[in-house]
Design a protein around this nucleic acid. Sequence first.
RNA 1: GGAAGGGUGGCAGAGUGGUUUAAUGCACCGGUCUUGAAAACCGGCGUAGGUGAAAGCCUACCCAGGGUUCAAAUCCCUGCCCUUCCGCCA
Length: 428
Amino acid sequence: MLDSKLLRTATEEVAKGLAKRGYELDVAKIQALEEKRKAIQIKTENLQAERNSISKGIGKAKQAGEDVAPLMQKVENIKQELVSAEAELATIQTEWDDFVNAIPNVPADEVPEGKSDEDNVEVRTWGTPRNFEFPVVDHVDLGANLGGLDFEVATKITGTRFAVLRGGVARLHRALAQFMLETHTTEHGYEEVNVPFIVNRDSLFGTGQLPKFEEDLFKLTDDREFYLIPTAEVPVTNIYRDEIVDEAQLPIKLVCHSPCFRSEAGSYGRDTRGMIRQHQFEKVELVKFVRPEESDAALEALVGHAEAILQKLGLPHRTVILCGGDIGFSSAKTYDIEVWVPSQNKYREISSCSSFRDFQARRMLARYRNKETGKPELLHTLNGSGLAIGRTLLAVLENYQQVDGSIVIPEVLRPYMGGQDVLIPAKK
RNA sequence: GGAAGGGUGGCAGAGUGGUUUAAUGCACCGGUCUUGAAAACCGGCGUAGGUGAAAGCCUACCCAGGGUUCAAAUCCCUGCCCUUCCGCCA
């Protein structure tokens, strides 16, 4: 959520910033609403003040044993006017809130211009894609051959876009999660958290999934309006909703392994084969709460923490900065990390790291007490995948495949695999 | 699932319809005193919004949302949460 005051006083600048992401701010609507709001608010508050003072007078008069009928008559007239004024103010307020809540974040200055993912700008690459001297097999066939990846049976159990993992592949999947958690906690200084995977509407509003992106979520039929989390970002970031933290506690760095559930409405026919796009997947998520002046540096560090996982795994990847047209609703600046997928002969997204600045914090009222001013101020929030586990598994299978269909297990994962160094295809 | 009691500032805690601008204590900040500190004493001390050049003034907020009333922390309804007891349960 953008600052209403800024929206009113610097409308043109905000509109210019939003234009970079292709969002046209309705300037005329802001001016019209603001004009109405101002008049009605002043009128309402004046009427309230008048009523309060007469009511106080009635109390005093009664105590003194005086006749209160004239005062009662006076307040009666005010009351009628007040009721309609209050209703009118509430209507305008709701209209304003609905309008402001639907406005996306303003992209940072350094976000490149552009309309789609084709305009994203490569920042750096790491590693060289391997030269295979045999026909590359994709992870679906590799996994089937290993007896460890079964999409058909998952379709029977549930439906499309689910997978069943077995044996060594299931173990490798678990090893990846463990390895990521261990690296982020012991080497990068994050605190591990375990959170609810079902959240309420307020939490989804706080991080920006609601009210605009309800169709991407799985909603429970329970009348408490619960939803399955689309990412651990939601529960983890909302830990500090409606909180004022001590400045001395900052920065707060949290890491969380969780399942993620996405309806993938609107992506019919895209990535239908394999593990790229599933209704359920696991992810290790990094979340930070920092002082405003530290958020730019914190984003760079966060991207580095995610890249470090791929480097330890020896997986070639590149990092791009998203252009204005491709950036998410709540984000001010986003880097995507893309891993090399040999079967597709291209890089595919495996992590998305964003700084939201104060956009989420304002929705959540997540604040810290500024030591110098003594006043509560909005935090800056950031998050990024570190990494998506299913896609990392896919990348390991494909990049480490051998001609006989076996998979070499990357060195760093072996401690989590009981020392095992290769996955061998099941006997037919 | 059943029964009872609760939810008030950073914390503790008073307040059951009107001189309550939410008492008081603790914590915190400033000052006096002191060689320095502590103690004591004096003063300050919530959030959001509006208005104003500023000082200030005004409005809303006592878990949340409705309602009754000229007037609600206080009365009524609904929801959420907490505590205790019973039942069920990994």
